[in-house]
Design a protein around this nucleic acid. Structure first.
Lengths: 154, 154
DNA sequence: AGTGAAACTCGCCGTCC
DNA sequence: GGACGGCGAGTTTCACT
């Protein structure tokens, strides 16, 4: 893996805010022509710095206004059980993020859903159906204060 | 707010996976020509269903391999203190997400950072500097099991 | 709401420095 | 590593349905 120069970093900073910016526009801001900027973007893509380009939607308009964080602890910690859990979580479309955590709780899930009854149904009929789950502890988001998809690029 | 038909939903589902898909490609999949698809996308953008288009980067390659969740409780809950906290959090680029929570803990922060010493420095010299913070409780992500930016579109 | 085509701009590639 | 130029492809708009 090679090092990124300042031009690369500027390109990444801009693209993670606005993926629709044209190469021409980027070139203008960088004081370059289209070609080198085009080549740099392709390089950043193929080296894996850019994972994908996505549209970020408005969850409130999509009838998914409720967000909860659910802490999951497993009953037993056999490798097979853990892997099974991770596999099942991938299939649940309500689960947007899932992390294996250090500490008392095994997994932290971020879940988007439309209403409290739906959440009840989700926990009862989907999440709790996964084998070997010990305890569940859900806390609800009252307000989203900050939510970016970008990273701080040093 | 008007209702979305199935064509709109299909467009949103595809765009939140891949923002670079061409209108022509979309039109092909939907069995339509380019124009109506183009008009629908513009409509979805102006109605706010699509908030932005972004490049999702690889945090491991950006020297930000560590993710932590930090639970923050305030000492007092005066409106002014809370608003000051929310304002200060916006300025911290290490904080990718911040939620005001129901329950015992006031805020949940998702933080990306390069190393444990950097995290120590962040907590000590940036986070703890914000007025009126009571307790902090950080838990570390061992592994990201699932992380999508998309929502389930019913 | 959708079709089809025209006009314009940009992305992409080769060549040269 | 960057500049320049040309062709193909995508975007945007419009007249018609």
């Amino acid at each position: 893996m090679e090092h990124l120069d300042e031009t690369d970093k500027t390109i990444l900073r801009i693209l993670q805010q606005d993926a629709k910016v044209t190469t021409k526009e980027l070139a203008g801001r960088l004081g370059l022509t289209i070609s080198p900027v085009y080549e740099r973007i392709k390089r950043l893509e193929s080296l894996g710095y850019i994972r994908q380009y996505v549209a970020v939607l408005n969850k409130d308009l999509l009838s998914q206004p409720i967000t909860t964080f659910c802490q999951v602890s497993m009953r037993y910690h056999d490798k097979a059980f853990i892997e099974k859990f991770e596999e099942e979580i991938q299939k649940l479309e309500e689960v947007q993020e899932c992390y294996h955590m250090a500490g008392e709780v095994d997994f932290l899930l971020k879940i988007n859903i439309g209403s409290l009854p739906e959440y009840h149904d989700f926990v009862r009929n989907k999440l709790s159906k996964i084998e070997n789950i010990g305890t569940l502890n859900s806390t609800f988001v009252l307000k989203e204060i900050k939510h970016t998809t970008g990273y701080h690029i040093a």
